[in-house]
Amino acid sequence: MNGVRPLSIPVILGTTRKGRMSAHAARFVFSQLQKREGVTSELIDIAELNLPVDDAGEAVKDPRFSLAMERADAIVIVSPEYNHSFPGLLKHILDSCLKEYIHKAAGIVGVSASVFGGARVIEHFQPVLRELGLVPIFWDVNFGTVHKVFDGGGELLDQAYIRRTDKFLSELIWMARVLRYGRENISLE
């Protein structure tokens, strides 16, 4: 494994909705990632990408997003649950890349106002991640009843999420290291 380059793990804030509580979750996970040694991260807000919607796939690729995904060793997707699934714009943006994702780890953070904590959106994501060549980890973070987890200013109210997020990130980083080793050293037969 190349020991010089730190792992790159961007956090994608996957909604553009006004008043989105997912922004608090994304900023919290991003702050926890920044505490990890040997890891660099950035917060990517899909509201700032402004991808065209008159086409799809690689035809609407955003160079900044593409470069961030190419550099990434793993990604964290923070997604609210809208009608039991992910926001359409998030899927639109994820679909704009492919080669950038292959054999890289992905972790999902679900956010919802209900007690389910985005469990259904996380399940919906699994076949999408697989088709994109991403490798989903088996830890998630579920921000259920999210209005009780963060106050209006984004301050964490429930300290249990520090440990839960720590477990999630440890697994994601392990998978990111393993997959980087594979991309660097193990050739397809």
Partner: peptide, 22 residues
């Protein structure tokens, strides 16, 4: 390092998809 192959959509070929080495 060539670590993967993937069939990707390509409207320019009759088959509609093409093999890519990653």
């Amino acid at each position: 390092n060539r670590h993967a192959e993937k069939l990707i959509k390509d409207s320019h070929v009759p088959e509609g998809e093409v093999l890519a080495s990653i």
